[in-house]
Amino acid sequence: MLVEQIALEFGMRERKIRVLIAKPGLDGHDRGAKVVARALRDAGMEVIYTGLRQTPEMIAEAALQEDVDAVGLSILSGAHLALAPRVVALLRAQGQERVSVFVGGIIPNEDIPLLLQAGVKAVYGPGVSTSKIAEEIRQYVAAVSDEIVR
């Protein structure tokens, strides 16, 4: 309803979830990243899309400037074990302890525990529904906001 929207805008503004979607590494397949970006937008989130061939340093810096709640990495090149833990480490080094990192793309099953150990919150392979991704991001962000009072 219109009037609720206005009330929200003028009174207590809604806390929007902000998500950075990035493609680290050298593969040029950004279809999956774009599908997820659009789905998260349609789930009411503000999605910052950074495009292809980002270094972990660029991703961490963009995540800092944009003060995002979550970072989604789309990796199809097989370099996930090098790239994802590096992004997590850089984020933590910058003091962004609260940012959830999730990974999408082609990730062999045996690598998933390694990524989770390195601090990745979740890994989404082909066929995962986008609504599941949105729902889980919402849960991570809610859990963190409860933990740390802003």
């Binding site: 809604e14 929007k16 349609d42 009411g44 989130m45 503000e46 999605v47 950074t50 400037q65 944009e66």
Partner: peptide, 30 residues
């Protein structure tokens, strides 16, 4: 949905890694 896709950074990659630059994307929020 109230969500937004903020894609301006895609064109600003030359500025990455420069501590003298700060880029912030904002959604118009209605």
């Amino acid at each position: 949905s109230g969500g937004a896709l903020l894609g301006d950074r895609v064109r600003m990659r030359d500025l990455a890694g420069d501590a003298g630059v700060f880029i912030r994307s904002m959604a118009s929020r209605g």
